[in-house]
Amino acid sequence: MNNVEITDAVLVREYMQGNEIALSKLINRHQHRIYSFIFSKVFDRDVAEDIFQDTFIKVINTLKRGKYNEEGKFLPWVMRIAHNLVIDHFRRNKRMPKFDNSGDFNIFSVLSASELNIETQIIKDQIENDVKELIKELPEDQLEVLTMRIYKDMSFKEISERTGVSINTALGRMRYALINLRKIIEKHNLVLTN
């Protein structure tokens, strides 16, 4: 009867109330996912270890200060902290990440000049994820046109045929989608630059 898993939100609340075992459970539950994520970016066990540690120090400090207010979203929140610390790491050390040559690693995939380096790739991914979240706030008709144009690479002619509106209306919706997206970005005080 006791095998019902306690949710992260409950464990977070218990920890904030002083139950240290709750933190242990949270770390045990998510350590693999968080550590793997960090390692997949830095490819170095020691660096991954440091970033994992710094991530949870931030988590502990925030929770103990009672500043955490994202109940139910513990893992995404921790992943975000880890993600930011990985970016900080690459900003501090503007050098290539170390690669383990035990596999069939192709050095030319890294040396390619046109390819984004790992830092800019991470930042690009983050910006794209942020934009994906932001566009959800757009009105349905504008969201539809923007998604078809940007993510599905459809022409305005195809969009007008699919949605049953004129090309001019589709163009107008796209224009307002971009204007509104800028407003949303300003409202949230976001900086989306690479």
Binding site: L23, Q31, Y35, F52, Q53, I60, K64, G103
Partner: peptide
């Protein structure tokens, strides 16, 4: 050749790191 999935299969932080975090939390 390890698949991408296998490469990250058993990745975990060291026990010492986790222990440090638990001790840090208790001391804070």
């Amino acid at each position: 050749k390890l698949s991408k999935k296998d490469q990250f299969k058993d990745l975990k932080p060291q026990k010492e790191t986790v222990q440090f975090l638990l001790n840090y939390s208790k001391a804070l």
